[in-house]
Amino acid sequence: MNQVLIYSVVTLSSLGILAAVILYFIAQKFKVIEDPRIDLIADLLPGANCGGCGYAGCRNLAGEIVKKEDLSGFMCPPGGNDTMKKIAAVLGLEAVETEPLIAVIRCSGSLASAQKKSEYDGVSTCLYAHMLFSGESGCPHGCLGLGDCVVSCQFDAIYIDSETNLPVVSNEKCVACGACVKACPRSIIELRKKGKKDRRIFVSCVNTEKGAVARKNCKVACIGCGKCVKECKFDAITMENNIAYIDFNKCTLCRKCVSECPTDAIHELNFPPKKPKQEVVEQSESNQ
């Protein structure tokens, strides 16, 4: 009995020692010496691995930052400037402030304004509908409403409004990682400046068809009339391919173009209700 006990103890312990020795040498051989700062920075990052920074995952970004020893060109959209400042403090570098962005849906072809002219039946993904036809409304550039952006969003920041069948971006949740921009087969979503108090002005249409054709499919399409371009004093609006585009770096949020648009294609978000004209001018100046 004792013999059995001794034998098993000896065998098992020698096996254990042998394994430990082997493991030790393997660990030595494959040892990766890593900058400890990578771990420090990775801990500061949100850990969502959303890819919004342009790198595959948070750790990857941390590695790149440490490698370059410079923060310019790096931005963690979900973490924002706060996170970048913390990273800067750890590395003893200067943080580069960037203005926060947000995803903007540039289509307002709701069920009411862009009526269904045919019906789609198939896999519930915009990508496939886009391959098959111009869409239920007939607009070849408009939102298909099947929610590829919703699926792509890791932050639960987009949902499809059941009434309009258009996606809605949450001001609070969106971190501007850009996943939805990539997911949208029709390039409707754009990352734009978040704006003070979340105030934004943009052309909510990407249809490049001629005015009359675009209008046939959707009441709120940009028809490329150019009124807004004339109205804008800051050269913020350009017209290309029958579609107006507001450069958010030049726009002063004066709101003059909004009322000028004959099809209500220019949208303003989170502004107080319209007051008499002078006040608007004042406000826009204070915003500059």
Binding site: L132, F133, S134, V213
Partner: peptide, 10 residues
């Protein structure tokens, strides 16, 4: 002109 053809697009 342009017209929607069998590809589903104008």
């Amino acid at each position: 002109d342009s017209i929607i053809d069998s590809s589903g697009y104008r």
